[in-house]
Amino acid sequence: MMVLTNTLCVLPKQLRLGNILRFISTCSKKLNDGSYMATERPPLPIMTSRKIEFPNPYIAPKQAWLENLDTVNSEKLGIVDLHPDIFGVAPRIDMLHRNVKWQQLYKYINYDWEPTRAEVRGGGRKMWPQKKTGRHRAGSNRAPQWRGGGKAMAERGPYSKYYMLSEADRINGLCIALSVKYAQNDLHIVDSLEIPTDESEYLEELIDTRYWGFSALFVDDTDIMPENIALAASDIGQFNLMPVYGLNVYSILKHNTLVLTLAAVDKIEKKLLERLHSPFLHSSKKGKRPS
């Protein structure tokens, strides 16, 4: 880090590491043979450790490669330490399901509607006398047990399925989703989202050569994405960009690969740890799914 600040003393002091890396990686250049190469880069490795707040005394930090996006083949720029409470928790699948179910339901409106016996046409006449026929006592042929009758306890939409999951569960779900991605080797950390061209073929080739699967979610700490990757990903439906504040369990699980920038990792870790060590975080029965 000291070497970095010395070589880039032109930059303002307040720039964070992620921004510095972002600045560096914009300097990639197209070669004559059509490939791309990053021209300026500080001596590797850029980083081999990372400061971790609220360390876990019993689990060593998880480690991940710091990679780049400005060349098709992956270059290992360094090693990043990840907090074990966020990237190394036990994979509780029930908690993931609870989060996914909540995300599907809270925006769901049930439009199912069926008529009651009062709303079905007809049925005002007593079908046969109360007594002396030997048949059952029938007052209306639109009662629920009749064919063509109304529906008892019917769905009376539109009905909102909105409920709020407790904050403890939401935070737990995010930690578990990140841990699952890390454990399955589907979590990649890059220095920045800068790519040298806005062609979608470049992004496809990059993801194919690195075996990143069919879909990828790129997460940055800001919502103003670099122009090239925004244009390149816009043509392909399964490559998506997302700021940190939009990160959610459903999207993490939906995409094959999760690509975080270093700045995004910093922000995610800071926010989650702040909530995990907050005096106001409670799990409540209120947040559970209404049965």
């Binding site: 979610l217 925004a230 990903a233 998506n240 960009l241 939009g246």
Partner: peptide, 10 residues
């Protein structure tokens, strides 16, 4: 949401 962003960029 990311899909929406991507679509708008298109």
């Amino acid at each position: 949401m990311a899909a929406t962003i991507a679509r708008n960029f298109a």
